[in-house]
């Protein structure tokens, strides 16, 4: 008895020592992880004249939020946030609707072509976008789009064009995740609905979709940050500077002839803030969205 309690005590002490080391390690790593962002913040708080004269690695003579104010006004960030929302909100919603429809149909009807379709969607999602950019650009100039949807009659240089390419590229991932999710739902639900005489669309709308809410919420959060963070498509497919999303607005601050890095640092932080907020607020959905995709398989 004494022996065991002694052994237990030492092992507990060893565990405690282990815990201390573990926490020390994790805290060090956390500091390293957070540092680049903190440094960016420090730079953003300093006036350009201060850093030109003393260098970036110097004790600050002045710290203020002026660069944030200048960045906000010079880059017109408020306006570009709105641009991003105009693209991201419909893109996320339509992506989720289309993806859930496909996922439903593919899980509902068992067929040899299912696997092929699923592969086609997912592979499209995984392809490096550079593989298709040049032809895509010409498609965007060639395909006519009626007036209310497009102010110049094309997909090019239009919000709808950007929304569309986001949908096309993201729908594969969402189909994959949702079809995995739907497969975990009890099959009897489907059958019961059908026996009740519900149409296939009603089964989708009233039976399956409500059950998918957790997966949809997770995917929605994830897709929002994906689309929010993109700047590649807008750079390519939007000509009008004032239609570009927030991430490319950063480029507007990088002049060929003059760049103020301190303002740029402030603007970069402001660009990052919405996704950080979304992440903190909807953490659970977020991580779930990421993990649903790759672990259910």
């Amino acid at each position: 008895m004494t022996a065991t309690s002694m052994a237990g005590g030492s092992s507990r002490r060893r565990i405690r020592r282990g815990r201390v080391v573990l926490h020390a390690f994790l805290i060090t790593m956390s500091l390293i992880w957070i540092f680049p962002l903190a440094w960016c913040f420090f730079t953003a708080m300093r006036p350009l004249s201060d850093t030109i004269l003393h260098g970036y690695f110097s004790w600050p003579t002045t710290l203020n939020f002026q660069n944030f104010i200048d960045g906000w006004t010079n880059a017109n960030l408020g306006y570009y946030y709105l641009n991003t929302l105009i693209v991201a909100v419909p893109a996320v919603i339509i992506t989720l609707i289309l993806a859930s429809l496909v996922a439903f149909a593919l899980t509902r009807v068992r067929s040899r072509i299912n696997l092929f379709l699923l592969m086609m969607f997912t592979a499209g999602n995984l392809l490096p976008p550079q593989v298709i950019i040049v032809p895509l650009y010409h498609f965007y100039l060639a395909i006519p789009i009626p007036k209310p949807l497009s102010s110049n009659g094309l997909l090019y240089d239009q919000y709808i064009g950007i929304i569309l390419i986001h949908i096309v590229f993201q729908v594969g991932f969402c189909i994959f995740v949702l079809s995995n999710y739907m497969r975990t739902l009890p099959k009897e639900l489907n059958e019961a609905a059908l026996v009740d005489g519900a149409s296939i669309f009603r089964t989708y709308r009233s039976v399956i979709l409500p059950l998918c809410t957790p997966a949809l919420a997770a995917l929605g959060t994830l897709e929002f940050t994906f689309i929010y963070n993109d700047f590649f498509w807008a750079l390519l497919l939007i000509k009008t500077g004032s239609k570009r999303p927030i991430t490319s607005a950063l480029n507007n601050l990088q002049g060929q002839f003059f760049t103020n890095y301190n303002i740029l640092a402030a603007a970069a932080l402001m660009v990052a803030i919405p996704t950080i907020i979304v992440y903190i607020a909807l953490q659970r959905q977020f991580i779930r969205g990421l993990t649903l995709g790759s672990t259910k398989g």
Binding site: L101, F104, M120, L127, V131, I132, L136, F169, I175
Partner: peptide, 21 residues
């Protein structure tokens, strides 16, 4: 309905990803 559910996204993916490829 099932055909449309699958067909529209399939068409979009073919037109905007696989044709450009």
């Amino acid at each position: 309905v099932l055909f449309l559910m699958v067909g529209i996204p399939t068409a979009l993916t073919i037109i905007f990803i696989w044709l450009p490829t």
